[in-house]
């Protein structure tokens, strides 16, 4: 998106018959109306989530879905955070939110670090078979995780990591490596090989070159990778629901338990507050670093 767009509507003067001004303005107005309509479509669920979470249950039952709350209350939020029941526990989302943090932080750091070293070795220290190895790693990006669920469950059991947060960290690191390696390799491939050769003549070795030359260049790709990994790990549900138990569930699993528990009165406001809480970290990352988020998505899309 760095290219300057060529404005289709701004052809060189005199090259085209100018449309009547009015018609042009009408077209522009229609265009903006359409864009606004779509914006409403995308924003509606967020709007409904926020307003519903700020309403009392009674108002939800009697009022309109899209109405602003008559009386703003944060009760649902505090209940979602620390009071609502997820299955048998009734401590709200809080412990699970911290589970997700405890899972995501080490998983993201480890997979990024290993991915960076892998990408560096695969792009500038090639050896016989290194391209095949890269292909084999890349292949994992397309794997439907259903194929590995059952053996993984058994291996985690053998390692004594079943139902634990370190177990989930291991899973996310292993299956995140494909993408992190891909990101770093594709970034480092654009670094000229002459830099490495110059540094070799200067006497630097594998790690020195990595630390002195590659790492200082890596801020953009580290950002992209960290955001990509964090979003994936935080939003993961399949691994969470398969490999965790009551105490170690990540926030997505807990949210699903809250929303889909069949006991008691449905507290829609609490559900919505919980959903927002669960979505807030990744949404925050997106708002703060959207550019890098998109870059990760599109980089991932090219190959995965």
């Amino acid at each position: 998106m760095t290219d300057q767009p060529v404005p289709l509507s701004a052809a060189p003067a005199g090259m085209r018959v100018t449309r009547p001004r009015l018609r042009r303005m009408a077209l522009r107005a229609g265009l903006y109306a359409m864009l606004a309509g779509f914006a409403a479509f995308y924003l509606l669920p967020l709007f409904v989530m926020v307003t519903t979470s700020l309403k009392g249950l009674e108002e939800i039952q009697s009022g309109s879905l899209v109405a602003l709350p008559r009386e703003i209350t944060f009760e649902a939020w505090s209940k979602a955070w620390s009071g609502t029941c997820t299955g048998i526990q009734c401590e709200g989302l809080r412990p699970f939110f911290w589970n997700s943090v405890a899972m995501a932080v080490p998983a993201v750091i480890l997979s990024t670090l290993i991915g960076a070293l892998n990408g560096y070795a695969l792009s500038h220290w090639r050896f016989r078979g290194s391209n095949i190895l890269f292909g084999a790693i890349l292949f994992g990006c397309f794997l439907p995780f259903q194929v590995v669920l059952m053996p993984m469950a058994r291996v985690l059991g053998l390692l004594g990591l079943a139902g634990s947060i370190p177990g989930l960290v291991l899973v996310h690191v292993v299956y995140g490596l494909g993408f992190t390696t891909l990101f770093f390799r594709n970034f480092y491939v654009t670094v000229p090989g002459e830099l490495v050769r110059a540094a070799k003549i200067d006497g630097a070795g594998f790690f020195r070159i990595f630390a002195s030359i590659f790492l200082p260049l890596s801020l953009p790709i580290v950002t992209v990778t960290v955001i990509w990994q964090f979003t994936n790990v935080w939003n993961d549900f399949l691994f969470g629901v398969s490999f965790s138990q009551a105490g170690s569930q990540p926030v997505t699993v807990a949210l699903n338990n809250i929303v889909n528990s069949t006991t008691g009165v449905k507290e829609y406001n609490v559900d919505m507050a919980a959903a927002i809480i669960a979505g807030l970290p990744t949404l925050g990352v997106y708002v703060l670093a959207g550019k890098y988020f998109i870059r990760g998505l599109t980089a991932g899309a090219v190959k995965g």
Partner: peptide, 12 residues
């Protein structure tokens, strides 16, 4: 050795 692209370390 002096390289074609100069191979100057860009962050130093």
């Amino acid at each position: 050795m002096v390289f074609q692209s100069y191979a100057l370390y860009p962050t130093m």
